[in-house]
Every structure is written in C-alpha cells, then in structure tokens.
Design a protein around this nucleic acid. Structure first.
Length: 582
RNA sequence: UGGGCGGUCGACUAAUGGUAGGUCAAGUGCCUUUGGAGCACUUUGUCUAGGUUCGAAUCCUAGCCGCCCAGCCA
C-alpha cells in the first residue's frame, strides 16, 4: 500500500464522453474487418500487462487504445495478466494495475491470467509434440545460443532435434514432474533453424524453473514462454485484435505459426508505436531502479511517469485520456514533447479546478492607512471558467503577504507588479500603492509599506483608472501555513538515455527535481482540504493536496505551473543580455 | 552484415493518385480583476535522386537515414 492509494476515493472515475479522436490505421483495420465480417462482427481486445511493475503513461496509451477501440465498435476488453515469469511477478503489482486501469476510467469485461491457461498450454505443447512439431532439447542455454547462429549465418540444428515423438512425450512429462534440474532441458518448437527471423529458429516453448508463482504457487516447475502463451491466450479469449508495441513485429510470424499448427481461433496481432516522452523514462526496468536506489520516494512519487505517480501529482484521468487520444497511433517511432502532456492537464484543470490564493514565498505588506483592528470579507470567484462554482469569502486585513516576486525595488523594464510609487490591484481586494520598504541587515526587503484606496474595494476604481497588474495575497493573521512541493523534470536532458560512454542514465537525474517550499501561506478556506483535491493557486499553477497532508500540516504538490509570460520575457531578456556580454 | 518496420512543419499527426490540413510549441496582436484563460493572426514541412501520370506525400526503382531482433524476459 502506497500513500497515494488514499487518493482512490477522491478521484473521478467515469470515462464520460470520449474526447474527439482522430482516426488511425488500427481503427481502419477494424472497420474493414467489421465490414467484411471477418470475425462475424466481433471486436474484442485485451490489455495484457506483465505484473512486474507499475503501469506508466505509456501503458495508458495502450489502455486507451485497447479499451477505446473495443468500446467504439460495441465490443469488450479483457484485462489479462501475462504472468508467465514467476521470478519477477508479484501480487502487489496486479493490484496496482487493476487500480490504475480503473482510475483511468476503464472497466474490463473479464479479469484473466495467462496462468489460468497453464493446463491448456501444457496440453497444446503435447499436441505439438505428437504432431512432430516440438521436441525436448538437452542443450544448455549457452549452447542454444551458439546453435542459433548470427544475423548473417543460419543456425545449426540441435542434435536432439529429431528424437522420437515417444521420447519427447516422455521427456516433457518428466520435465513437468520435476525430474530434471532448472535449465537442464527445454521444449522447443521445430520450425526452421535457417530462418532469417530468429524467432522462428526453433523457439523455446517451455523452460524448467523452480520458482513460486504468485498464483499457482509451486504447482508447476515448467513455465511457458511469452511466445507460447500470448497468442494462445488471445485465441482462447477469442480476441480479434491483439494490439502490442512495435518490438513484437518479429514475433508475429511465430504468433501465427502456433495458432495455425494448433488450429485454434485466429486472433490477429497488430503493432503500433510505443509512447516516448521528452525528459521522461518509460522503461519498467529503469523505473524499478529509480525506486530501488531511492532516487525517488517510490512508484507513486509525483515525479514518476507511473499512473500512480501522475495521479499523486494531481493529473486527472480525463487529461491523460485526452492526451492519449490526441497523440495518434502509428508505426513511426517518435518522441512527444512533454509540453503536449502538460497542455492537456492545464486544459482540463482550467475547466474544473477551484481558484484559491496562496503565497509561496511570502513578503509582508503593511497597509499603513488601513485601520489596525479591522478585517473584512472579500468576495472571490471560485472559477471564472465555471460560474456555477460560486464564490467564497476571503479575509482581508491590514497586514498581508504577497509573493516576493511581485515586488521589485528596482523594477526591470516591462515589470507591471508592485514597486515603489506604483499602484497595483490586490485581487478581489483594493488598489494599493507602495510607499516605502523595510530591509533587514542583509539589505533584503522584508516589508513593504503601502497605502490603499478605500474607494477601490473589490478591485474597481470608481474614477475608472486602470492598473497594469493584479496580484494575489493572503491576510497575514488569517492565512494557514502549508508546505508545497514543486516538481521539475526528473531528468535534465530531453533524452534521459543520452549519456556519455560508460555513464548510466542516472547521470542525467535532475538534482532539483523536487523543491520543498516550507513557509507557504494559503487562504483559510483551504484549512480542511482533503488529499487528492485539486486547486488552482491563482497566478501560480495547479496544485493538489498530497496524501501526506493532514489537518495540522497541509501539503500540496504542484501539478503543473500556469503559463508564465513574464517569466518567459525575463528569461529571454537575460539570455539576450548575457549573449551580448560575450 | 541477414531479417522486420518506418521516414510529412521544431514535436506529434491528417491527407488512402486531385487545394499539404489539425494539435502542441514558438511568435505577433486583441482582450483581461490571474502577465492565467480566451480570441485572431503568423512562421516553418512531404529524406534524396530518378521514373510512371494530365496530376505523386501517396505508385515504381535506386539510394540515404532511423528503430527493432541473436533471453530458457515480456
């Protein structure tokens, strides 16, 4: 159980109407199959994760495809765990996978496991032996590799390839009974050692492995390999369109071979491109490494591209689905810019997140002409994009906090916010003008004294005068303390695998990917915010309440920042000036 | 090197022999009680060379470039 599991209840689940989706080659294949009545109109897919890790955004793409397409054609989708390698698989993973698929808004028709088919698969292996299409090989794994040949040379046939059917039957039975040590023998399909496709050079069907399986325990000491399990599992479930990623293209001839030799339901495999994202790693092995080495706090660390990490970060299922549906499905291997993903969270959160005011880096503002013991309730709009979200009261008083960034003693060109002598609007508050500053011994501004115009209550000047900037604030005495966790990209390079010879991808880890801001002040309406709730902190970004949060210690994660035009301008200016200096 | 699969604006993706379009990004302007959001506009593209055709991103040929495959992993 990870902390983010608490988020379950807070998360919307309904998939709702699908976002506009553009067509793709797989949809066209299905359309054609339905038209030609290839499977009597049946469209059934499966999502087949191996329970050896947590699902990530790349899986989300596959999930949206598998479930989305089946649903579109009135079919269904099975969730099937591809659990043929007991050494890596765990129940913890199957549970997290089910939770994540549901959170994304999908429900499977059948919950299945490849291990459900171990008996059937064994019988099919026997059937192939009897047909002279499979044999028990005594070669060691090393020898098998040597016999397999190379890219340019054909393989050699194993000396055991032509054993009698009776001997193969006996040996295979004894493999199952545990008479031989792990790896001593294996069952191989008799296909073609000279095939240019390695998968057809007598692929291994079964191996001897004494490992406890998370579901079948110690019942078996032989396990089928992926190729001898996947297609048959599809076939058993009458999967019509079995989508998988491009690296399995070379496996398709074998997938079809087993189906043909066994004479079973002809599921068809269709390959599409795996998702790649800039600044993001989508390899289970490497994500596992990050977790094991403590580079992140766990699978659900908000910096992780896992579904549980993204969820904890504050992304919505809708945003992820919209993203997946709009990136397209092709056979080209490309890399999508992270900005694309971020666009979809902003788009979704902009519509639904309630606005609140929070000051991440407080700077005290004293309004000298505001009565000392006075406090007022200012009315604030909860969501300008959705007026039905109503309004709330925000306390205002003589001493406030504003963002340190919102005051400059020496404002650069184009800076519209507060500076000496300048007037700005406090959002939903008053116009204020900075009069003088108080500095500490280091010469840093620690307090800004201002005057306010009582006639501008609510933020409008009766004389019609305009201010160039509106800044957010909280009342010093009413504000609630909080901690905010700011996340930056986990890696410093668009391609995290781009490392010098000999270095590991961890060399590209961004040391500043997590920044904890302790002294945050948020408006009092947030006092009892619950884990998983999402807000927009006005002018800053979208934030959600982390499961670490409690009644006495609010903790927020920044999901994504708002677009910051000023920051961009400033960055460009400084880049320009430093460029000239050279 | 054998085999498989691909190459369309900076990124992703449409156009299925007939106007190269959309989204993101970038830029400009408008608007604004979020320098947010929104709106409008703009820039940039068919890997190369030949060929077929009235017409080619699409078909053909030859190159070039990229990804995947030599686990008893999936």
């Amino acid at each position: 159980m990870t902390p983010s599991d608490k988020l379950k209840e807070a998360s919307p689940t309904a998939a709702g109407p699908a976002a506009p989706t553009q067509s793709n080659f797989i949809r066209e294949i299905i359309r054609e199959d339905v038209k030609t009545n290839k499977y009597s109109g049946r469209v059934w897919t499966r999502f087949p994760p191996e329970p050896n890790g947590y699902l990530h955004i790349g899986h989300a793409k596959a999930i949206c495809l598998d479930f989305g397409l089946a649903d579109e054609f009135g079919g269904g989708t099975n969730l099937r765990f591809d659990d043929t390698n007991p050494e890596k698989e765990e129940t913890e993973y199957v549970e997290s996978i089910m939770r994540d698929v549901r959170w994304l808004g999908f429900e499977w028709e059948n919950l299945l496991y490849a291990s459900d088919y171990f008996d059937q698969l064994y019988q099919w292996a026997v059937q192939l032996i009897k047909a002279g299409k499979a044999y028990v090989d005594d070669l060691t794994a090393d020898e098998v590799r040597q016999y397999r040949g190379t890219l340019t040379e054909p393989g050699k046939e194993s000396p055991h390839r032509n054993r009698s059917i009776a001997e193969n039957l006996d040996l295979f039975e004894r493999m199952r009974l545990g008479e031989f040590p792990d790896g001593a023998r294996c069952l191989r399909a008799k296909i073609d050692m000279a095939s240019p496709n390695f998968n057809m050079r007598d692929p291994v069907m079964y191996r001897i492995l004494r490992a406890e399986h998370h579901r079948t325990g110690n019942k078996w000491c032989i396990y089928p390999l992926y190729d001898f399990a996947h297609g048959q599992s599809d076939s058993l479930e009458k999967i019509t369109h079995s989508m998988c990623t491009l690296e399995f293209e070379d496996h398709r001839p074998l997938y079809n071979w087993y189906i043909k030799e066994l004479g079973i339901f002809p599921s068809q495999q269709i390959e599409f491109d795996r998702l790649n994202l800039t600044y993001t790693l989508l390899s289970k092995r490497k994500l596992l490494q990050l977790v094991r080495e403590g580079r992140v706090r766990g699978w659900d660390d908000p910096r992780m591209p896992t579904i549980s990490g993204i969820r904890r970060r504050g992304y919505t299922p809708e945003a992820i689905r919209n993203f997946c549906n709009s990136i397209g499905v092709t056979k080209t291997n490309g890399t999508i810019e992270l900005a694309m993903l971020e666009h979809f969270v902003r788009e979704d959160l902009n519509k639904r997140a309630l606005r609140v005011m929070a000051v991440l880096h407080p700077l005290k503002v004293v309004i000298d002409n505001y009565p000392e013991d006075q406090a007022e309730e200012m009315e604030a709009v909860n969501n300008p994009e959705d007026l039905s979200a109503g309004t709330r009261k925000v306390p205002f008083s003589r001493e406030l906090y504003i963002e340190q960034d919102d005051f400059r003693e020496d404002p650069p060109k184009g800076y519209f916010r507060l500076s000496p002598g300048k007037e700005v609007r406090l959002r939903y508050g008053y116009f204020i003008t900075a009069q003088r500053v108080v500095k500490n011994e280091q010469g840093e501004v620690v307090e800004v004294h201002c005057t306010y115009d009582p006639a501008t209550r609510g933020g409008n000047a009766p004389d019609g005068r305009k201010v160039k900037s509106t800044i957010h604030w909280v009342s010093a005495s009413h504000a609630v303390p909080a901690e905010v966790r700011i996340y930056e990209m986990l890696f410093t390079k668009p391609d995290p695998n781009d490392v010098p010879e000999g270095a590991e991808f961890t060399a590209n880890l961004n040391p500043n990917s997590l920044q904890t801001v302790k002294n945050v002040r948020v408006e009092p309406s947030l006092k009892s915010a619950n884990a998983g709730e999402r807000y927009q902190f006005e002018r800053l970004g979208y934030f959600c309440v982390d499961p670490d949060s409690g009644p006495d210690a609010l903790v927020f994660n920044r999901t994504v920042a708002l677009k910051d035009t000023w920051a961009k301008m400033e960055k460009k200016q400084s880049a320009g000036s430093s460029g000239k200096a050279k």
